[in-house]
Design a protein around this nucleic acid. Structure first.
Length: 754
DNA sequence: TGGGGATTT
């Protein structure tokens, strides 16, 4: 074995194991309907537990598991028929097509339907079209929610092609910063956050005749809030004229809950034992191997497994799931080292790292076709589980580990995010394995035992149990709802609720009777965390709105501004030196945003005013290129800056509605900026102790300034910070120095505003 | 001396 000679370690041995016990034992539930076999079974409801496997969407484990699934011929055929358009033929061949009539019948007959559809069933593209055909769009819109923007957009694009109509007419989408929909739109794909927002304006969602919640198993915070509200809306909209459910409701609503796997029964129970409809998927079979023994060092085990595949197995790209960037970079080096020592005749290896913080310029490599028949090896975080699909993958190596952020509510100084490497869930494991079967039969090597798989949690805890509730509570209060009284699928811990209430009180959003204040209502009108919204509002009196919007829009962006590459540390530090502000990270952000804007004018520094005038006239290519080059030279994510610019524009609109003049600037004075931010970050503050450590003002937690902060290793009397993250230690991230005297008056300030 | 991944009229 050539690799064994370069490594003293033994290659792990794998035994094939067809996951015999991955279908959880379930009690017979009378509500199950299987429509996979098509219209033969209309009216003849089959009991699921007697004949169909449902829990394992990623791969098959019945006797015919390892053969390619049969492709059904179109039902409409014969010499007399017109040949079907390729698109329509494709639609008819999707697994769900055979169940169309039965599915529509069930949706007509029931208020809520739970649709359990495996990957590749076609449920997300087809069900809305079936509902359209069945006349559901005559009284309203068919809305389909997605957790991710890109999914909503690409689905709408696909379905508009299937409908033969331009995007934005019959089929449209609506996501933040981007909408393609019109008065004639009947099928609308949208993010769950968008529909949550619509609730604030129309608490009955009355323009929708059907709402389809897709990927419900992901249980995002917004999905959970939607589900609770849909239950309420159904009660209000679907009762008859006499108000008691008799007679015909004027504007009834249908709800369809779609889930890939697992938890279908929980959705059914939540909606009063709603019918569960099951549709098979059409995924290529993936053969699963578990390691015979548990692996202590998963990076090393992944290394050995990769070369075992590379040397022994036929061509096909390899996707390795790892927890984070550190492991990815370490494995990348190891694989390259060993790949260079391979004997002649072995294909080369092209190693591609993939994680969210990667520079945009590196991303295309993931999709590139390797040269010289090299084998591509993608090292990815769980970004490759749901967000990005990579073509060509035939082998998956699953370490069984992933990082998970979890919010721990504090009873004093705000909360704390933990970011820890943990065992993944069974649902994640199946999702990861499924990534090997998208184009053909595949293989998944799990670096953990079958017993370890069985011991994993079936699914991740819902997000509502793992995040700060302050923003959700504030939004609900504006709807006249109380999170504690809401009929949620899972109720968050009492600690999380009281911590959020406390935060809202300290920010002045609630009064001492827990009533929403005018300030709270103003805060809720911003698409921001309450802490950030508070800072924007505080900037009005302090005359620093333009600057605060520059800072907050970056903080509210989904990705990092400063991209770091481990191997260019010195170069990066040198490039950014001029941007660093002695007062800390917030003003460093401000410098960066200003410099970026100025770079678009002449490549020279500028007060930004000229650029704003130029922007108003239309964006010039020269300016765009200059900005792009500037961002690249300073190792700054332009994607983040562009997202921040879009957020800033939206915030300006919110400011206008709230009576805040977003043009007001404090010029070069820095204190008004920091003071505004401090009004929002009042709970996130620490004072230096005699021993040189920082201690929270509210609460006694000792915090360390994150090494990535410009304030790292600096000793100042007092700091504010964006967040606390616990990894190995409790780190404060996004740190600025602030005058100590500020805190004496802060509490009084917020309450006076309230 | 260290950064799982989404999202918002």
């Amino acid at each position: 074995m050539p690799v064994a000679s370069t490594s003293t370690k033994k290659i792990p041995l794998f035994k094939p194991s067809p996951i015999k016990h991955s279908t959880p034992k379930r009690k017979p539930i009378p509500n199950w309907v299987d429509v996979s076999d098509g219209e033969d079974h209309i009216g003849k409801r089959k009991r699921l537990n007697s004949h169909v496997n449902v829990s394992n969407g990623a791969f098959k484990h019945h006797p015919q598991a390892h053969s390619t699934p049969p492709r059904k011929k179109p039902r409409v055929s014969g010499p007399a028929e017109e040949p079907l358009e390729p698109i329509q033929e494709h639609r008819r061949q999707l697994p769900i097509a055979r169940g169309k009539d039965a599915l529509v019948q069930e949706i007509i007959a029931n208020e809520v339907t739970v649709l359990l559809g495996e990957t590749g069933s076609g449920k997300t593209t087809q069900v809305p079209q079936y509902l359209l055909d069945a006349g559901f769009a005559e009284q309203g819109i068919i809305g389909i929610t997605q957790p991710r923007k890109v999914a909503a957009i690409s689905l709408a694009r696909r379905v508009s092609v299937e409908q033969g109509q331009p995007l934005g007419t019959r089929v449209g989408y609506s996501v933040r910063f981007d909408e393609r929909a019109s008065a004639e739109t009947k099928i609308k794909y949208m993010t769950d956050g968008m529909l949550t927002r619509e609730l604030l304006g129309d608490s009955l969602l009355s323009k929708y005749s059907v709402i389809v919640i897709d990927e419900a198993h992901e249980r995002t915070l917004r999905t959970d809030l939607l589900l609770a509200n849909l239950k309420r809306i159904l009660r209000l909209r679907n009762k008859g004229e006499d108000g008691k459910g008799k007679g015909k409701a004027r504007n009834p609503l249908k709800v369809v809950i779609m889930s890939a796997t697992l938890d279908a029964e929980k959705f059914s129970q939540f909606f009063h034992s709603a019918k569960i409809i099951y549709v098979k998927g059409r995924q290529h079979p993936v053969k699963i191997y578990h390691s015979a023994q548990g692996q202590q060092d998963y990076v090393d085990a992944a290394l050995r497994t990769f070369f075992q595949i590379h040397i022994d197995q036929p061509p096909g790209d390899v996707l390795i799931f790892l927890p984070g960037q550190e492991d990815i970079e370490s494995l990348e080096k190891s694989i390259e080292l060993f790949a260079n020592q391979l004997p002649q005749g072995h294909p080369e290896v092209m190693v591609v790292p993939m994680f969210a913080a990667l520079q945009a310029s590196q991303m295309p490599r993931v999709f590139a076709v390797p040269q010289n028949n090299a084998r591509k090896c993608i090292l990815a975080t769980n970004i490759a589980e749901t967000s990005i699909t990579i073509p060509g993958v035939r082998y998956v190596i699953d370490t069984g580990k992933g990082k998970e952020k979890r919010y721990l509510a504090g009873n004093t100084g705000g909360g704390l995010d933990t970011l820890m490497t943990r065992d993944i869930t069974q649902s994640s494991a199946m999702q990861r394995a499924g990534r090997a079967g998208r184009e053909g039969p595949g293989f998944c090597y799990r670096l953990y035992t079958e017993e370890a798989f069985a011991a994993m949690l079936p699914a991740a805890e819902p997000e509502i149990m793992r995040c700060s509730l302050a923003q959700a509570m504030l939004q609900l209060l504006c709807l006249g709802q109380d999170l504690q009284e809401l009929d949620l699928m899972d109720m968050p811990d009492h600690d999380a609720i009281s911590s959020a209430l406390r935060t809202l009180f300290l920010l002045g959003a609630l009064d001492s009777h827990r009533e929403l204040t005018p300030l709270g209502r103003a805060m809720a009108s911003f698409p921001l965390e309450p802490t950030h919204a508070r800072a924007v509002i505080a900037s009005k009196e302090l005359g620093s709105t333009a600057e605060v919007l520059d800072v907050i829009s970056v903080l509210a962006s989904s990705s990092k501004l400063f991209v770091d590459a481990t191997d260019k540390r010195a170069e990066i530090a040198e490039a950014r030196r001029a941007l660093i502000h002695p007062a800390g990270d917030h003003l460093t952000l401000l410098n960066t945003v200003r410099a970026y804007r100025a770079a678009g004018v002449n490549g020279e520094d500028d007060d930004g005013e000229a650029e704003r005038r130029k922007e108003a006239k239309g964006k010039g290519k020269v300016g765009r290129d200059a900005r792009k080059e500037w961002a690249r030279a300073h190792f700054i994510s332009e994607r983040t800056l562009r997202e921040a610019a879009a957020i800033r524009e939206q915030l300006c609109v919110s400011c206008e509605r709230a009576g805040i003049d977003w043009r007001v600037s404090c010029g070069e004075r820095e204190e008004p900026v920091l003071l505004s931010l401090a009004h929002g970050l009042a709970q996130n503050a620490a004072l230096i102790a005699p021993d040189g450590t920082y201690k929270q003002i509210m609460g006694q937690t000792v915090v360390k300034i994150h090494p990535g902060s410009s304030m790292a290793d600096k000793k100042v009397p007092a700091i504010i910070y964006d967040e606390l993250v616990y990894t190995n230690q409790i780190y404060a991230r996004g740190v600025s120095s602030i005058s100590k005297s500020f805190f004496a008056t802060l509490g009084a300030f917020n309450r006076r505003e309230a």
